[in-house]
Simulated assay, not measured.
Amino acid sequence: MFSLIQLESFVAVAEELHFGAAAARLNMTQPPLSRQIQLLERDLDAQLFERSSRKVELTAAGKVLLPSARRILDLCTKTSLDVRRVATGDAGSIVIGYTAIAGQAALPGILRKAGEQIAGVSLVLREAVSVDQLEALSRGAIDIGLLRPIVARPGVVTRPFMEDRLVVALPEGHDLATGNGVFLKQLDGLPLMMYSTAEARYFHDLVMRLYESAGVQANITQFASQAPALLAFVAAGLGVTLVPGSSMDFAPPGVSFEELRGPSGLADLNRADLHVAWSEATANPAVIRLLELILDDPQGAVGPVA
């Protein structure tokens, strides 16, 4: 059976893709690091890295192991913090999941509140798409999620947190980048950078509903799971996309934005709100306190809302 030091060594090498840099990060020399990787590969009976004199790359088996290894280490970190809190009387720990855009638009404000009001709480942050956050909440791997309202999940409570809408992202200098807004029909036939159905079903379905409402055919040419990746495609001039308005302040150079224009009913359809989610079974006082701060609920009335 593999050990935590083996997983820590593997994750360090997988993220650095350099044994020397990974060894420095772990405050160890390279030979024992290589030994830990060898032991892990022997225990799993699988090669995890392709090594050459010039580069290190993950094998297919390594790519499968990486997310699970991160989850195990996160859970171990959370468990260690919880046990230490019981032993020392510390205020507790909270694992927060967040999407890439939520990490820029919403997370800083939440961390600021936590720092001001519950400074003794240890926060563990984990970026993940909404569907993965729901799964992690169900397993108890995270305590609070900042996600899009994809589907109801038994045992998971959600509350609206931030109103948002989709806007059109265009390559800088595009003919439609006029500052006057864009009608969906004007996107007909343009290469569309689209959300993955597996990891970003909420946004994929929302974009498709918007296109269908205007009778526009979606000419999908690229897929990605997060808005920053889609914006990178747009900045490269490969097409257009629709992203949450909250992402406009964090876009790369080379991207212009236009509001979606259309009939009065468009505003009701074009909703991309951000929700806060947590397990209804949570008994962690630190989690409950942070939820009260996030939701401006000082009376302690945090309760189930589907």
Rank of each mutant, 00 (worst) to 15 (best):
T99P: 01
D90I: 01
A114D: 01
N270P: 03
I96T: 02
D74I: 01
A227K: 03
I220P: 00
T99S: 11
G300S: 10
D296Y: 00
E135I: 07
E16Q: 14
A218K: 03
R84T: 09
A286Y: 09
F161L: 15
V157C: 11
G262P: 04
A14H: 10
G103Y: 10
M194V: 01
P228W: 07
L44V: 08
A236V: 00
S138A: 14
D90T: 09
M194H: 14
I94L: 11
S138K: 07
I96M: 11
E280A: 12
E15H: 10
A232L: 02
R35H: 12
F10Q: 08
L75Q: 15
G92K: 01
Q222V: 02
K113R: 12
E16V: 03
S80C: 05
A306D: 03
F10N: 07
V156P: 01
G155P: 05
D132Y: 06
V86G: 09
Q222H: 15
A87Q: 15
D188S: 15
V11R: 08
S138D: 01
A177N: 03
L176S: 12
N180V: 00
T29V: 09
I142Q: 06
A277P: 01
V86E: 14
I118R: 04
G254N: 08
V86Q: 15
A306M: 05
Q38D: 09
